[in-house]
Design a binder for these strands. Sequence first.
DNA 1: GTCTATAGATCGATAGAC
DNA 2: GTCTATCGATCTATAGAC
Lengths: 195, 195
Amino acid sequence: MARTQGSHSGITGPRIRDAALRLFAQHGFAAVSMRQIAKEVGVQAGALYNYTPDKQSLLFHLMEGHMTELLATWQDQPRNGGALSQLEAFTRFHIRFHMQRPDAVFIAYMELRNLSPQNFTAIESLRREYENTLEAILKQGVAERVFSVPDTKIATLAVIAMLNGVNTWYRAGGRLSLDEVETTYWQMVRRAMAV
Amino acid sequence: MARTQGSHSGITGPRIRDAALRLFAQHGFAAVSMRQIAKEVGVQAGALYNYTPDKQSLLFHLMEGHMTELLATWQDQPRNGGALSQLEAFTRFHIRFHMQRPDAVFIAYMELRNLSPQNFTAIESLRREYENTLEAILKQGVAERVFSVPDTKIATLAVIAMLNGVNTWYRAGGRLSLDEVETTYWQMVRRAMAV
DNA sequence: GTCTATAGATCGATAGAC
DNA sequence: GTCTATCGATCTATAGAC
């Protein structure tokens, strides 16, 4: 029977974030109304404001949570060997991590322009931090003389852009396993960077 | 003195497309109102409907025009030599063409989800056509034994994703000239594909 | 913590005057 | 071809009952 008041389920907060993540990724932040999110969760629109002060803050915390988790997970990866094996680890990690949360990735790259100026600065700072970890690997490889790149900053952005492309076409259950995709991209990245 | 009726300038149509292109790229299709576009052009909102039946059609024709011009310009490029020189030509063409119209590129990749289903199909078809011209070069190179790629379809998407990344960071007047950027990316593409 | 109800703003699109 | 004016829908966010 329909419950119309006081659900008190205790999990409304996560359900709001899940619904918002999916709807923002599918239709875009500006195209999704608070009423749509509420309907998806099964509450009225007003109830959302018990969990977020406004729509902008909801978007920001989705993006911030994603970037923070990305950085923390990468920092926790085992790190050993020279620059070449570290670059392979980065390549495989990046593809795997991003394939596991396509909606969050989509939002983090597409909705930057819908952030308030100070929220934008915060997210950009996290993104730069992630890019810097890759650039450090490339610089180390150049010093070790195992990589040959004319410009480590451009190479960093080129590698990340190439790897991000996986999200636009790969679907689980397709022609290739995720491991095969990782291996294919790793070959291209390795040859593009290695001497 | 302010003219409030009957401008008859004869160039309102292009100005509407220019304003819409810039505003859609900056704020996103869903976040831009017809009133904003009209204000930018210097007319009232109602006047826009002399040039487009609705907002969706305005978006579609911007994207269709961009993709059609992309295909036509690439087809007009001189094409000679083997697969290696054709891949270099593609790389340099792609970077140059896309850097010259960042707003159109941004819209063509970001606003797909705001197209009606049949408009989406039409744009996707044009995009696939463009991708196919690159894949043909890669296949030719594999046949010539100058390229070594495990999967020409993935390699196609990887190269385009990498090259598209230029638009996210390059600004005219920066540290590198466009020609230097082309050369840098061409080195990475060449080494990623060549035997 | 969720509901109903609504304030106040803004939206896409249209009608009819000039 | 552009204007003014407006319809009807929808939006974010808030107020107050339960």
